[in-house]
Design a protein around this nucleic acid. Structure first.
Lengths: 209, 209
DNA sequence: TTACCGGTTATACAGACGGACAATAACATC
DNA sequence: GATGTTATTGTCCGTCTGTATAACCGGTAA
Protein backbone atom coordinates (compact mmCIF):
# COMPACT_ATOMS: atom_id res chain seq x y z
CA UNK A 1 0.00 0.00 0.00
CA UNK A 2 2.54 2.57 -1.12
CA UNK A 3 0.75 5.64 -2.48
CA UNK A 4 3.02 8.08 -4.25
CA UNK A 5 3.75 11.17 -2.23
CA UNK A 6 2.41 14.43 -3.64
CA UNK A 7 5.04 16.44 -5.50
CA UNK A 8 6.53 19.06 -3.26
CA UNK A 9 6.13 22.62 -4.50
CA UNK A 10 7.09 25.72 -2.57
CA UNK A 11 5.55 29.13 -3.23
CA UNK A 12 6.15 32.54 -1.69
CA UNK A 13 4.11 33.05 1.49
CA UNK A 14 2.19 35.96 -0.05
CA UNK A 15 1.30 33.90 -3.09
CA UNK A 16 0.20 30.91 -1.02
CA UNK A 17 -1.92 33.10 1.20
CA UNK A 18 -3.59 34.67 -1.78
CA UNK A 19 -4.12 31.28 -3.41
CA UNK A 20 -5.81 29.96 -0.30
CA UNK A 21 -8.04 33.01 -0.09
CA UNK A 22 -8.95 32.66 -3.76
CA UNK A 23 -9.80 29.01 -3.20
CA UNK A 24 -11.98 29.93 -0.26
CA UNK A 25 -13.80 32.47 -2.40
CA UNK A 26 -14.35 29.85 -5.04
CA UNK A 27 -15.89 27.47 -2.51
CA UNK A 28 -18.21 30.15 -1.17
CA UNK A 29 -19.27 31.25 -4.63
CA UNK A 30 -20.18 27.72 -5.57
CA UNK A 31 -21.98 26.64 -2.44
CA UNK A 32 -22.13 29.28 0.28
CA UNK A 33 -20.09 29.46 3.46
CA UNK A 34 -20.96 25.91 4.35
CA UNK A 35 -19.14 24.65 1.28
CA UNK A 36 -15.89 26.30 2.33
CA UNK A 37 -14.41 23.39 4.27
CA UNK A 38 -10.70 23.18 4.96
CA UNK A 39 -10.49 20.07 2.82
CA UNK A 40 -12.27 21.61 -0.15
CA UNK A 41 -10.21 24.78 0.05
CA UNK A 42 -7.03 22.74 0.11
CA UNK A 43 -8.15 20.66 -2.84
CA UNK A 44 -8.92 23.72 -4.97
CA UNK A 45 -5.64 25.36 -4.00
CA UNK A 46 -3.94 22.06 -4.92
CA UNK A 47 -2.47 21.65 -1.46
CA UNK A 48 -2.91 19.36 1.52
CA UNK A 49 -5.34 20.33 4.31
CA UNK A 50 -2.54 20.61 6.84
CA UNK A 51 -1.03 23.51 4.95
CA UNK A 52 -4.12 25.64 5.37
CA UNK A 53 -3.61 25.56 9.10
CA UNK A 54 0.01 26.56 8.59
CA UNK A 55 -1.14 29.87 7.11
CA UNK A 56 -4.30 30.47 9.12
CA UNK A 57 -4.60 29.52 12.81
CA UNK A 58 -8.16 28.31 12.33
CA UNK A 59 -11.05 28.37 9.93
CA UNK A 60 -12.47 31.58 11.29
CA UNK A 61 -9.25 33.42 10.50
CA UNK A 62 -9.35 32.11 6.96
CA UNK A 63 -12.91 33.31 6.50
CA UNK A 64 -12.16 36.75 7.93
CA UNK A 65 -9.12 37.16 5.69
CA UNK A 66 -11.26 36.15 2.74
CA UNK A 67 -13.91 38.67 3.65
CA UNK A 68 -11.34 41.42 3.99
CA UNK A 69 -9.77 40.55 0.65
CA UNK A 70 -13.17 40.49 -1.03
CA UNK A 71 -14.19 43.93 0.18
CA UNK A 72 -10.76 45.42 -0.47
CA UNK A 73 -10.81 44.21 -4.06
CA UNK A 74 -14.10 45.99 -4.69
CA UNK A 75 -13.25 49.32 -3.06
CA UNK A 76 -9.87 49.18 -4.75
CA UNK A 77 -11.54 49.02 -8.15
CA UNK A 78 -13.58 52.10 -7.33
CA UNK A 79 -10.68 54.17 -6.00
CA UNK A 80 -8.69 53.11 -9.02
CA UNK A 81 -11.35 54.51 -11.35
CA UNK A 82 -11.63 57.62 -9.21
CA UNK A 83 -7.90 58.30 -9.23
CA UNK A 84 -7.78 58.08 -13.00
CA UNK A 85 -9.89 61.21 -13.25
CA UNK A 86 -8.63 64.62 -12.28
CA UNK A 87 -11.65 66.59 -13.40
CA UNK A 88 -14.33 68.22 -11.28
CA UNK A 89 -16.69 66.95 -8.59
CA UNK A 90 -19.50 66.15 -11.00
CA UNK A 91 -17.28 63.92 -13.10
CA UNK A 92 -15.96 62.22 -9.98
CA UNK A 93 -19.42 61.41 -8.71
CA UNK A 94 -20.40 60.09 -12.10
CA UNK A 95 -17.36 57.85 -12.23
CA UNK A 96 -18.05 56.65 -8.70
CA UNK A 97 -21.55 55.63 -9.73
CA UNK A 98 -20.49 54.01 -12.96
CA UNK A 99 -17.64 52.07 -11.39
CA UNK A 100 -20.02 50.75 -8.76
CA UNK A 101 -22.52 49.57 -11.35
CA UNK A 102 -20.26 47.92 -13.90
CA UNK A 103 -18.07 44.87 -13.87
CA UNK A 104 -15.78 44.02 -12.21
CA UNK A 105 -17.51 45.52 -9.17
CA UNK A 106 -21.00 44.61 -10.28
CA UNK A 107 -20.57 40.89 -10.72
CA UNK A 108 -22.56 37.91 -9.58
CA UNK A 109 -19.47 36.46 -7.97
CA UNK A 110 -19.07 39.52 -5.75
CA UNK A 111 -22.68 39.45 -4.76
CA UNK A 112 -22.46 35.82 -3.80
CA UNK A 113 -19.48 36.51 -1.57
CA UNK A 114 -21.10 39.60 -0.11
CA UNK A 115 -24.33 37.82 0.79
CA UNK A 116 -22.48 34.87 2.26
CA UNK A 117 -20.44 36.98 4.63
CA UNK A 118 -23.41 39.13 5.44
CA UNK A 119 -25.21 36.02 6.61
CA UNK A 120 -22.55 35.63 9.29
CA UNK A 121 -23.01 39.07 10.81
CA UNK A 122 -25.04 37.81 13.74
CA UNK A 123 -22.79 34.82 14.21
CA UNK A 124 -19.39 36.47 14.36
CA UNK A 125 -18.57 39.86 15.90
CA UNK A 126 -15.38 40.14 13.84
CA UNK A 127 -17.31 39.83 10.60
CA UNK A 128 -19.86 42.25 11.96
CA UNK A 129 -17.21 44.87 12.72
CA UNK A 130 -15.56 44.48 9.33
CA UNK A 131 -18.88 44.87 7.61
CA UNK A 132 -19.79 47.99 9.52
CA UNK A 133 -16.47 49.56 8.65
CA UNK A 134 -16.81 48.78 4.94
CA UNK A 135 -20.35 50.14 4.89
CA UNK A 136 -19.43 53.40 6.59
CA UNK A 137 -16.40 53.86 4.35
CA UNK A 138 -18.55 53.60 1.28
CA UNK A 139 -21.26 55.87 2.60
CA UNK A 140 -18.78 58.51 3.76
CA UNK A 141 -17.11 58.48 0.36
CA UNK A 142 -20.54 58.97 -1.14
CA UNK A 143 -21.31 61.86 1.19
CA UNK A 144 -17.96 63.52 0.49
CA UNK A 145 -18.50 63.39 -3.26
CA UNK A 146 -21.97 64.87 -2.94
CA UNK A 147 -20.77 67.66 -0.65
CA UNK A 148 -17.93 68.52 -3.06
CA UNK A 149 -20.39 68.65 -5.91
CA UNK A 150 -22.66 71.19 -4.22
CA UNK A 151 -19.62 73.25 -3.26
CA UNK A 152 -18.48 73.21 -6.86
CA UNK A 153 -21.91 74.37 -7.97
CA UNK A 154 -21.98 77.06 -5.25
CA UNK A 155 -25.22 75.67 -3.88
CA UNK A 156 -25.50 75.90 -0.11
CA UNK A 157 -26.89 72.79 1.53
CA UNK A 158 -27.15 71.99 5.23
CA UNK A 159 -24.99 69.01 6.17
CA UNK A 160 -28.08 67.25 7.47
CA UNK A 161 -29.64 67.27 4.04
CA UNK A 162 -26.42 66.10 2.44
CA UNK A 163 -26.39 63.20 4.84
CA UNK A 164 -29.91 62.29 3.77
CA UNK A 165 -28.84 62.47 0.14
CA UNK A 166 -25.89 60.22 0.90
CA UNK A 167 -28.13 57.64 2.53
CA UNK A 168 -30.51 57.69 -0.41
CA UNK A 169 -27.78 57.60 -3.04
CA UNK A 170 -26.06 54.81 -1.19
CA UNK A 171 -29.35 52.92 -1.13
CA UNK A 172 -29.86 53.34 -4.88
CA UNK A 173 -26.37 52.14 -5.66
CA UNK A 174 -26.73 49.19 -3.30
CA UNK A 175 -30.07 48.28 -4.77
CA UNK A 176 -29.03 48.58 -8.40
CA UNK A 177 -25.87 46.67 -7.63
CA UNK A 178 -27.95 43.87 -6.16
CA UNK A 179 -30.28 43.77 -9.14
CA UNK A 180 -27.42 43.90 -11.61
CA UNK A 181 -25.35 41.22 -9.94
CA UNK A 182 -28.23 38.85 -9.82
CA UNK A 183 -29.36 39.36 -13.40
CA UNK A 184 -26.08 39.87 -15.17
CA UNK A 185 -27.57 38.85 -18.50
CA UNK A 186 -30.90 40.63 -18.02
CA UNK A 187 -29.49 44.14 -18.37
CA UNK A 188 -27.43 45.47 -21.26
CA UNK A 189 -23.90 46.45 -20.36
CA UNK A 190 -23.97 49.98 -18.96
CA UNK A 191 -27.76 50.11 -18.73
CA UNK A 192 -27.80 50.09 -14.96
CA UNK A 193 -24.90 52.53 -14.77
CA UNK A 194 -26.87 55.01 -16.87
CA UNK A 195 -29.99 54.43 -14.83
CA UNK A 196 -27.93 54.97 -11.70
CA UNK A 197 -26.61 58.30 -12.92
CA UNK A 198 -30.08 59.47 -13.93
CA UNK A 199 -31.56 58.41 -10.61
CA UNK A 200 -28.87 60.12 -8.56
CA UNK A 201 -29.40 63.28 -10.61
CA UNK A 202 -33.09 63.13 -9.78
CA UNK A 203 -32.40 62.62 -6.09
CA UNK A 204 -29.95 65.52 -5.93
CA UNK A 205 -32.18 67.75 -8.06
CA UNK A 206 -29.41 68.31 -10.59
CA UNK A 207 -28.85 67.74 -14.28
CA UNK A 208 -25.14 68.30 -14.37
CA UNK A 209 -23.62 64.87 -14.09
CA UNK B 1 -28.24 4.42 33.35
CA UNK B 2 -31.96 4.97 33.00
CA UNK B 3 -32.65 8.34 31.35
CA UNK B 4 -36.24 9.41 31.55
CA UNK B 5 -38.08 9.22 28.28
CA UNK B 6 -39.25 12.52 26.81
CA UNK B 7 -42.90 13.29 27.47
CA UNK B 8 -45.07 12.35 24.56
CA UNK B 9 -46.89 15.30 23.02
CA UNK B 10 -48.93 15.31 19.86
CA UNK B 11 -49.67 18.47 17.86
CA UNK B 12 -51.62 19.12 14.71
CA UNK B 13 -49.53 18.59 11.58
CA UNK B 14 -49.86 22.24 10.50
CA UNK B 15 -48.72 23.46 13.90
CA UNK B 16 -45.76 21.10 14.00
CA UNK B 17 -44.71 22.13 10.54
CA UNK B 18 -44.88 25.77 11.42
CA UNK B 19 -43.00 25.16 14.67
CA UNK B 20 -40.21 23.42 12.82
CA UNK B 21 -39.98 26.23 10.29
CA UNK B 22 -39.87 28.81 13.07
CA UNK B 23 -37.11 26.85 14.79
CA UNK B 24 -35.15 26.74 11.54
CA UNK B 25 -35.51 30.48 11.18
CA UNK B 26 -34.26 30.96 14.70
CA UNK B 27 -31.15 28.88 13.98
CA UNK B 28 -30.38 30.79 10.81
CA UNK B 29 -30.87 34.15 12.49
CA UNK B 30 -28.46 33.24 15.23
CA UNK B 31 -25.70 31.65 13.21
CA UNK B 32 -26.38 31.50 9.46
CA UNK B 33 -27.43 28.51 7.40
CA UNK B 34 -24.62 26.42 8.82
CA UNK B 35 -26.13 26.66 12.28
CA UNK B 36 -29.42 25.17 11.12
CA UNK B 37 -28.65 21.54 11.81
CA UNK B 38 -31.43 19.00 12.17
CA UNK B 39 -30.47 18.42 15.78
CA UNK B 40 -30.49 22.11 16.67
CA UNK B 41 -33.79 22.69 14.93
CA UNK B 42 -35.29 19.76 16.81
CA UNK B 43 -33.94 21.04 20.11
CA UNK B 44 -35.43 24.50 19.62
CA UNK B 45 -38.76 23.04 18.51
CA UNK B 46 -38.59 20.81 21.61
CA UNK B 47 -38.77 17.66 19.59
CA UNK B 48 -36.50 14.77 18.71
CA UNK B 49 -34.41 14.87 15.51
CA UNK B 50 -36.24 11.95 14.00
CA UNK B 51 -39.48 13.89 13.94
CA UNK B 52 -38.02 16.54 11.66
CA UNK B 53 -37.54 13.91 9.02
CA UNK B 54 -41.10 12.78 9.51
CA UNK B 55 -42.30 16.20 8.31
CA UNK B 56 -39.60 17.01 5.78
CA UNK B 57 -38.04 14.33 3.57
CA UNK B 58 -34.60 15.87 3.92
CA UNK B 59 -32.81 18.97 5.07
CA UNK B 60 -33.06 20.71 1.73
CA UNK B 61 -36.85 20.50 1.84
CA UNK B 62 -36.84 22.02 5.31
CA UNK B 63 -34.69 24.91 4.15
CA UNK B 64 -36.82 25.55 1.07
CA UNK B 65 -40.01 25.54 3.13
CA UNK B 66 -38.40 27.97 5.54
CA UNK B 67 -37.36 30.27 2.71
CA UNK B 68 -40.84 30.21 1.27
CA UNK B 69 -42.41 30.97 4.64
CA UNK B 70 -39.98 33.82 5.22
CA UNK B 71 -40.70 35.57 1.94
CA UNK B 72 -44.43 34.97 2.19
CA UNK B 73 -44.54 36.56 5.63
CA UNK B 74 -42.94 39.73 4.29
CA UNK B 75 -45.04 40.12 1.16
CA UNK B 76 -48.11 39.30 3.20
CA UNK B 77 -47.41 42.23 5.51
CA UNK B 78 -47.20 44.55 2.52
CA UNK B 79 -50.38 43.32 0.81
CA UNK B 80 -52.10 43.57 4.17
CA UNK B 81 -51.16 47.24 4.47
CA UNK B 82 -52.14 47.81 0.85
CA UNK B 83 -55.55 46.21 1.21
CA UNK B 84 -56.37 48.37 4.21
CA UNK B 85 -56.37 51.44 1.98
CA UNK B 86 -58.99 52.05 -0.66
CA UNK B 87 -57.81 55.49 -1.69
CA UNK B 88 -56.02 56.54 -4.86
CA UNK B 89 -52.84 55.40 -6.54
CA UNK B 90 -50.64 57.98 -4.83
CA UNK B 91 -51.71 56.84 -1.39
CA UNK B 92 -51.22 53.21 -2.39
CA UNK B 93 -47.68 53.82 -3.54
CA UNK B 94 -46.92 55.74 -0.37
CA UNK B 95 -48.24 52.90 1.76
CA UNK B 96 -46.27 50.39 -0.26
CA UNK B 97 -43.08 52.34 0.42
CA UNK B 98 -43.79 52.88 4.07
CA UNK B 99 -44.74 49.28 4.72
CA UNK B 100 -41.52 48.16 3.08
CA UNK B 101 -39.41 50.46 5.23
CA UNK B 102 -40.93 49.92 8.67
CA UNK B 103 -41.10 46.99 11.03
CA UNK B 104 -42.15 44.26 10.80
CA UNK B 105 -40.87 44.09 7.23
CA UNK B 106 -37.78 46.16 7.90
CA UNK B 107 -36.25 44.10 10.64
CA UNK B 108 -32.78 42.77 11.26
CA UNK B 109 -34.21 39.29 11.62
CA UNK B 110 -35.66 39.40 8.14
CA UNK B 111 -32.47 40.69 6.68
CA UNK B 112 -30.49 37.90 8.29
CA UNK B 113 -32.81 35.31 6.81
CA UNK B 114 -32.81 37.02 3.44
CA UNK B 115 -29.02 37.19 3.21
CA UNK B 116 -28.65 33.60 4.35
CA UNK B 117 -30.92 32.21 1.69
CA UNK B 118 -29.47 34.51 -0.91
CA UNK B 119 -26.08 32.98 -0.21
CA UNK B 120 -27.46 29.65 -1.39
CA UNK B 121 -28.60 30.88 -4.79
CA UNK B 122 -25.65 29.41 -6.64
CA UNK B 123 -25.79 26.23 -4.62
CA UNK B 124 -29.42 25.24 -5.06
CA UNK B 125 -31.53 25.76 -8.17
CA UNK B 126 -34.75 25.51 -6.15
CA UNK B 127 -33.71 28.40 -3.94
CA UNK B 128 -32.62 30.27 -7.01
CA UNK B 129 -36.00 29.85 -8.69
CA UNK B 130 -37.88 30.87 -5.55
CA UNK B 131 -35.76 33.96 -5.20
CA UNK B 132 -36.26 35.01 -8.80
CA UNK B 133 -39.99 34.66 -8.45
CA UNK B 134 -40.12 36.73 -5.27
CA UNK B 135 -37.97 39.43 -6.82
CA UNK B 136 -40.08 39.71 -9.95
CA UNK B 137 -43.30 39.75 -7.94
CA UNK B 138 -42.07 42.68 -5.91
CA UNK B 139 -40.78 44.59 -8.91
CA UNK B 140 -43.95 44.01 -10.90
CA UNK B 141 -46.06 45.23 -8.00
CA UNK B 142 -43.84 48.28 -7.92
CA UNK B 143 -44.23 48.86 -11.64
CA UNK B 144 -48.00 48.45 -11.46
CA UNK B 145 -48.31 51.03 -8.69
CA UNK B 146 -46.20 53.51 -10.61
CA UNK B 147 -48.17 53.00 -13.80
CA UNK B 148 -51.47 53.48 -11.96
CA UNK B 149 -50.15 56.65 -10.43
CA UNK B 150 -49.30 58.24 -13.77
CA UNK B 151 -52.65 57.16 -15.16
CA UNK B 152 -54.35 58.80 -12.20
CA UNK B 153 -52.40 61.98 -12.84
CA UNK B 154 -53.19 61.80 -16.58
CA UNK B 155 -49.50 61.90 -17.41
CA UNK B 156 -48.58 59.81 -20.43
CA UNK B 157 -45.43 57.77 -19.96
CA UNK B 158 -43.99 55.15 -22.31
CA UNK B 159 -43.96 51.73 -20.65
CA UNK B 160 -40.21 51.57 -21.16
CA UNK B 161 -39.69 54.58 -18.94
CA UNK B 162 -42.06 53.21 -16.32
CA UNK B 163 -40.01 50.04 -16.29
CA UNK B 164 -36.88 52.08 -15.65
CA UNK B 165 -38.64 53.90 -12.83
CA UNK B 166 -39.69 50.58 -11.35
CA UNK B 167 -36.14 49.29 -11.41
CA UNK B 168 -34.85 52.44 -9.76
CA UNK B 169 -37.60 52.59 -7.14
CA UNK B 170 -37.13 48.93 -6.40
CA UNK B 171 -33.42 49.59 -5.95
CA UNK B 172 -34.02 52.46 -3.53
CA UNK B 173 -36.40 50.40 -1.45
CA UNK B 174 -34.02 47.44 -1.43
CA UNK B 175 -31.12 49.65 -0.47
CA UNK B 176 -32.92 51.54 2.27
CA UNK B 177 -34.32 48.29 3.59
CA UNK B 178 -30.80 46.89 3.80
CA UNK B 179 -29.50 49.97 5.59
CA UNK B 180 -32.42 50.06 7.95
CA UNK B 181 -32.34 46.38 8.84
CA UNK B 182 -28.67 46.53 9.63
CA UNK B 183 -28.83 49.67 11.74
CA UNK B 184 -32.16 49.31 13.43
CA UNK B 185 -31.12 51.63 16.23
CA UNK B 186 -29.24 54.12 14.05
CA UNK B 187 -32.33 55.55 12.41
CA UNK B 188 -35.34 57.01 14.15
CA UNK B 189 -38.56 55.11 13.60
CA UNK B 190 -40.09 56.25 10.34
CA UNK B 191 -37.02 58.23 9.27
CA UNK B 192 -36.16 55.85 6.47
CA UNK B 193 -39.78 55.56 5.40
CA UNK B 194 -39.94 59.34 4.99
CA UNK B 195 -36.64 59.37 3.17
CA UNK B 196 -37.92 56.62 0.94
CA UNK B 197 -41.06 58.57 0.02
CA UNK B 198 -39.07 61.72 -0.70
CA UNK B 199 -36.56 59.82 -2.82
CA UNK B 200 -39.24 58.06 -4.86
CA UNK B 201 -40.92 61.42 -5.43
CA UNK B 202 -37.66 62.79 -6.76
CA UNK B 203 -37.16 59.80 -9.04
CA UNK B 204 -40.67 60.03 -10.46
CA UNK B 205 -40.49 63.81 -10.77
CA UNK B 206 -43.61 64.24 -8.65
CA UNK B 207 -44.56 65.95 -5.42
CA UNK B 208 -47.92 64.33 -4.93
CA UNK B 209 -47.27 61.41 -2.63
C1' DT C 1 -61.77 -4.55 25.80
C1' DT C 2 -58.55 -5.17 22.11
C1' DA C 3 -56.12 -4.55 17.93
C1' DC C 4 -54.33 -1.42 15.00
C1' DC C 5 -52.10 2.74 13.13
C1' DG C 6 -49.70 6.91 12.64
C1' DG C 7 -47.20 10.44 15.32
C1' DT C 8 -43.26 10.45 18.29
C1' DT C 9 -39.10 8.89 20.64
C1' DA C 10 -34.57 6.83 20.93
C1' DT C 11 -30.62 4.87 18.96
C1' DA C 12 -27.39 3.35 15.34
C1' DC C 13 -24.38 4.22 11.51
C1' DA C 14 -21.35 5.84 7.96
C1' DG C 15 -19.22 9.77 6.39
C1' DA C 16 -17.24 14.40 6.74
C1' DC C 17 -15.56 17.84 9.54
C1' DG C 18 -11.87 20.84 12.14
C1' DG C 19 -7.89 20.53 14.43
C1' DA C 20 -3.37 18.32 15.95
C1' DC C 21 0.94 16.24 14.99
C1' DA C 22 5.00 13.79 13.38
C1' DA C 23 7.61 12.91 9.24
C1' DT C 24 9.66 14.81 5.16
C1' DA C 25 11.54 17.96 1.58
C1' DA C 26 13.50 22.26 0.10
C1' DC C 27 15.90 26.16 1.35
C1' DA C 28 19.21 29.32 4.10
C1' DT C 29 23.23 29.97 6.56
C1' DC C 30 27.56 29.16 7.76
C1' DG D 1 29.32 20.27 2.59
C1' DA D 2 27.05 20.18 7.17
C1' DT D 3 23.34 21.99 9.88
C1' DG D 4 19.33 24.37 11.30
C1' DT D 5 14.90 26.32 9.71
C1' DT D 6 10.72 26.60 7.49
C1' DA D 7 7.24 25.06 4.21
C1' DT D 8 4.73 21.05 3.08
C1' DT D 9 2.96 16.45 3.40
C1' DG D 10 0.37 12.50 5.30
C1' DT D 11 -2.24 10.70 9.03
C1' DC D 12 -4.77 10.51 13.12
C1' DC D 13 -8.59 11.62 16.55
C1' DG D 14 -12.80 13.18 18.69
C1' DT D 15 -16.93 15.34 17.29
C1' DC D 16 -20.82 16.35 14.68
C1' DT D 17 -23.71 15.72 10.67
C1' DG D 18 -27.71 13.71 7.88
C1' DT D 19 -30.12 9.81 7.44
C1' DA D 20 -32.10 5.22 8.57
C1' DT D 21 -34.53 2.33 11.62
C1' DA D 22 -36.39 0.12 15.70
C1' DA D 23 -39.07 0.85 19.90
C1' DC D 24 -42.80 3.24 22.07
C1' DC D 25 -47.13 5.73 22.94
C1' DG D 26 -51.95 7.40 22.63
C1' DG D 27 -56.04 7.83 20.28
C1' DT D 28 -59.69 5.30 17.22
C1' DA D 29 -62.67 1.90 15.70
C1' DA D 30 -64.46 -2.59 15.90
Amino acid sequence: MMTKRRTFHRSSPAERRSDLIAATQECIVQGGVGAATIRKVAEIADVTPGLVRHYFPDKKALLCATYQATMCAMTEQITLALNGCERGAAAKLRIFIEASLRPPVMQQRNHQLWASFRSLINADPTISAMHREAYLDYRNECQRLIRDLYVELSIAQPEKRIEGYAIAVNAVLDGLWLEGCLNEQLFARGELAELGVATVQAILGLETL
